[in-house]
C-alpha cells in the first residue's frame, strides 16, 4: 500500500507543556483511519500541525512522498490535503452554493479572477451543485448558512473540504453537536466518500468510529498509545483503562 500521509517523530510543546510527543503515524492511500483519545490528548493539535496551522517543534510531515513540514497551509491544500473543522467554520452570511464554490474556485485557480462575473463560471457552479447533490444539499443551495439547520451545516463543512478534491481528508469530529437521530446521515455521507481519498477521522462517538474505521490510533497525552484494527483496539486493556475515566464525562 502507498503511504498518503506520514509523520515521523512529530513533537509540539508550549513551554513546559508537551502536547505532542514523538508521534509516528502513517495514513495509507484510501484508508479509513480514526484517531481517538480522551479530551486533551492532543488530537486537534496534531491535526493543526498536519494542516500547517501550527508549526511543530520538531519532526517531519510527509504528504504523498514529499516533505511538507515547512510548507505553508495554502500549498499543502494545493498538494491535496483537506480538512473540516470541529466547530463549524463556514461563511455564515453566504449561501450554501457559494460556500462550496469558494473552495472549488480556489482549487481550479479561478478565484483571483476579477473581470468576469463569478456566476459566469459555469464549471465552478456545476461542480459545486453536483457536489451538493451527492450530499443531499441540492435544494439548499440558495439558503444562507445562517438559515440552515445545524445538521446540514455539518454536511456543508464536509462539502467545502470535498470541493478541494483532496487526496487526504482530515475530518475533525464531523458529528460533533449533531443529535444522534441525525448522525446516521453523517455516517451515510462518510460511507459514500470516494474510495481513493485517504480519510483520517477524529471522533468521540465510538459507535461511529467503530462502524467507519478500518484502523484506529489511540492518542493519550500527546503520545501514541496503541494502533491497530478496530477489533484489536476494542480488546486492548490499556485503551479500556484510558476510556473508563473518560466515560464519566464523555
Amino acid at each position: 500500500m502507498n503511504i498518503a500521509l506520514e509523520t515521523r517523530g512529530l513533537c509540539k510543546s508550549f513551554g513546559a507543556l508537551t502536547v505532542a510527543d514523538d508521534i509516528d503515524f502513517r495514513l495509507e492511500s484510501g484508508a479509513r483511519h480514526a484517531l481517538i483519545g480522551p479530551n486533551g490528548a492532543g488530537k486537534t493539535t496534531f491535526v493543526n500541525m498536519l494542516t500547517g496551522a501550527l508549526p511543530p517543534s520538531s519532526g517531519t510531515i510527509v504528504l504523498g512522498g514529499e516533505d511538507i513540514t515547512a510548507m505553508r497551509q495554502a500549498k499543502r491544500v494545493k498538494r491535496g490535503l483537506g480538512r473540516t473543522f470541529q466547530i463549524n467554520a463556514l461563511f455564515r452570511r453566504l449561501p450554501v452554493l457559494d460556500n462550496v464554490a469558494l473552495a472549488v474556485a480556489e482549487r481550479c485557480g479561478v478565484a483571483r479572477r476579477m473581470l468576469r462575473a463569478a456566476s459566469a463560471h459555469g464549471d465552478v457552479r456545476e461542480e459545486s451543485m453536483e457536489l451538493l447533490a451527492t450530499l443531499g444539499l441540492a435544494e439548499d443551495a440558495g439558503v444562507r448558512i445562517l438559515d440552515l439547520p445545524y445538521g446540514k451545516q455539518r454536511l456543508v463543512e464536509i462539502a467545502i473540504a470535498l470541493g478541494l478534491k483532496p487526496s487526504v481528508l482530515l475530518l475533525d469530529e464531523p458529528a460533533a453537536g449533531v443529535p444522534s437521530l441525525e448522525s446516521h446521515r453523517i455516517l451515510q455521507v462518510l460511507d459514500n466518500l470516494p474510495k481513493h481519498i485517504a480519510i483520517l477521522i477524529i471522533e468521540h462517538d465510538m459507535d461511529l468510529v467503530f462502524r467507519f474505521a478500518q484502523r484506529i490510533t489511540v492518542l493519550v497525552q500527546g503520545e501514541v498509545l496503541v494502533e491497530g484494527p478496530p477489533d484489536e483496539i476494542a480488546r486492548d486493556r490499556r485503551v479500556h483503562q484510558v476510556y473508563l475515566g473518560e466515560q464519566h464525562h464523555a
Binding site: 495554502a74 461563511f91 453566504l94 469558494l102 474556485a105 479561478v110 478565484a111 483571483r112 456566476s119
Partner: peptide
C-alpha cells in the same frame, strides 16, 4: 461580482476557513 470579490467576502466571513481552502 467576480470570483475575486466573492473570495473577499469569504475572507470577511471566515478568514480561518479561507486559509484552510488554500486561498
Amino acid at each position: 461580482y467576480s470570483p475575486f470579490g466573492t473570495s473577499l467576502t469569504g475572507v470577511r466571513e471566515n478568514s480561518l476557513r479561507m486559509h484552510a481552502i488554500g486561498a
